[in-house]
Each structure stands twice: as C-alpha cells, then as structure tokens.
Design a protein around this nucleic acid. Structure first.
Lengths: 181, 181
DNA sequence: GTCTATATTCCGATAGAC
DNA sequence: GTCTATCGGAATATAGAC
C-alpha cells in the first residue's frame, strides 16, 4: 500500500507521545494497520530506525510552523509558541521531547543524537526570538535570553506531562503565567 | 539479610529516576544485591508493589524535608525548594514525577493513584507557601498562587529532564530565572 | 529469606514464500 | 510489500526446596 511508511511513522509518533518509546511495540502498530509485524520491519528494520524518523518528523514540523510565523511580531510569535500545543491537551499527549527525555539513557545512540538536535533547535529559535523581542521593546525580562528560553520551554513541557496525570487546569495555568511576559 | 527490603526500594528508586519504570527489571536489582530475582519477589510480589513503595518513599521524603524548613521565612523556603535537587544534577537523575508521568498510562492503577497523590501534595504545599509569602510581602507575583506553583514546579521538573539530555547549564539557568521572584 | 527451576508471555528481529 | 513461521532473548511471576 502506498503511504504505509508515513502511516507507520504517524502511529509511532502518537504512541511515543502517549506511552513512551519503551512501552510500545511493532505489534501495536501492525494491529492498527491490520498488517503483520514483519511488514513494519520491511519499512524500518529496527525500532531505532523508526524512533529516529519520529523525532525527525517532529523537527520538520517545528521548522515548518515557526517558519510560517516569521512575518509576525516577536510578542505574537512567542504567544504562538506558548499556545501551539493547545490542540493536543484533550488527547493527553506530550511533546516528543517530554516523552523521550526521562528514558534518554535507554535510547539507541541514533535517537539520542536526534533528540539532542531537536532540543537545541527549539532552544536556539526561542532564544533568538526573546533576544530580538527585548531589543525592539516588545518583550521584557531580566534573565539572559537563553535562561528565559530554557525556563519557558521547561515550564511548557512539563505542564503537558502534569496534564497527563492531573487532567485539570495545569496546562492553562502555566500558559497564563508565561503569557504575562 | 536485615534491611534488604529497604535496599531494594532504594535501588528501585534510583533506577526509576534513571531510566523509568518500564525500562528496569527485577534482575537489575538482584544483580546489584547479589541475590536472585525470586528473592525480590518475596519482598515485593509484583513490580507494581515495588513501584508504589518507591513513590511513597518520595512522598515521605518531601514531607520530611519541607517540615524541616518550617521555621524559615517564606522566601527562604522557596529558595530551599528551588535548590533542593542540586545534589542529583551530576548524577543525571530526575525526580520521580518527571520519570513516571510520560508513561502514566502504562502504569498499574495503584501507582497512578500514588503518583497523583504525590503531585497534589507538592502543588498544595507550594501554593500555600506562595500565597502566604505574598501576603506578608516576602514574595511578589501577578498570577494566582496555584498558577505560580504549577509554573515553578513545571519549570524545575523538566529542567531536570533537559539536564539528562543536554548535560549543560540548563538546570542552573532555570534556577536562576526562578529565583528572581 | 533466599534458592533452583520453570511456566508464561511478549518482544525485536530474520528467513524465505508469495 | 506483505505474508507465515520461527528464533533468541528477556521479563514477570510462581512453586517448592533449603
């Protein structure tokens, strides 16, 4: 079937962000596609290959969406970033960084490298945005741009994690707090 | 051997906070204690029983350490909270909340309940502290105490996660940012 | 309290037919 | 590109001896 490879990546993406890398199996995916686990191995010989593609997919999505914001003001871009995950709250998904980081030491080296790259890309983009926004007066904060970027990113990431457990207003609370910048 | 039960809990605590619940096995523990995996089952019939005890141990530790701060000023108590994990940075451990939350849906119900309880205890303590600190003028922030508690807790939690991956100054950066309150 | 031995289940992965 | 069949390994867990 055409597009099966993409479907596999999409399902793996959801599974990783729901239960983590160590807790899903090829059988979970093959059942959803009504094929056999051997068919998954044809597209992705090892689980590490699939894991790498899932991280790359998330990196591509981040680059694409931030690029689509580039005509907006800095403060508006920050707001877009802070609210970009609103659509997944009800599904109780986390971002891929939050789902993979706790078990980082159990990941194949190829995935570790790709995850590291994803995080640095996000922090780099956010730091630049904060620095430029403060320079032109749209944003105001006392820390260095990198410190502020780490803090905003961290708060959002684990608000998604807490939302999984508490299923209350934690994500909205953190968002309100961060938007006061 | 006397105290084996406690040793098992301590090793499991470190393992969960290093690689997560799904990625460690009874054999990992039994090897470190130079006993057989069946001996672990004598103390904890199922892995869920051990997992629950690990979470309870962390709750007890939280209650004990926050109680030891109760004579300090509110601002000082907040500083103690923000810096309480400094000792585990080099070990690249996370807190148990950060390690278990991403795979929450794969946890046994008994562990889910206990983790939920731990998080609510932390947020409740931190919210109370922030509210009282603002009332007596030691602390200053614009959000509600609960919103601020979620934000501080979230930022710290995932700074520990990012530290696992990046092994740079991310934890210190977030800490500096949070201490500006 | 710890052991040996084993039952059971599941997973990642491969070989080879179609 | 998907299938059947299977291997090898690991994990949770239990029974029963010491």
């Amino acid at each position: 079937m055409k597009g099966t490879r993409e479907e596999i990546i999409n399902i793996a993406n959801t599974l990783i962000r729901s239960v983590g890398y160590n807790a899903f199996s090829y059988t979970d995916i093959s059942k959803k596609l009504d094929i056999k686990n051997a068919a998954i191995h044809y597209h992705f010989p090892s689980k590490a290959d699939l894991g790498v593609e899932v991280i790359k997919k998330n990196l591509d999505a981040f680059l694409r969406i931030t690029d689509s914001w580039k005509e907006l003001g800095y403060k508006q871009q920050l707001t877009e970033y802070i609210t970009m995950h609103n659509g997944i709250i009800k599904k109780r998904l986390t971002c891929v960084v939050g789902s993979l980081s706790p078990s980082f030491d159990t990941l194949p080296p190829s995935m570790q490298k790709e995850l590291h790259n994803l995080i640095e890309t996000i922090i780099s983009w956010l730091s630049d945005l904060l620095r430029k926004g403060r320079e032109n007066g749209e944003l105001s904060f006392n820390e260095t741009p990198e410190e502020k970027a780490y803090t905003i990113h961290s708060a959002l990431l684990s608000a998604l994690l807490m939302n999984k457990v508490l299923q209350n207003n934690v994500y909205q609370s953190v968002q309100n707090s961060l938007l006061k910048i």
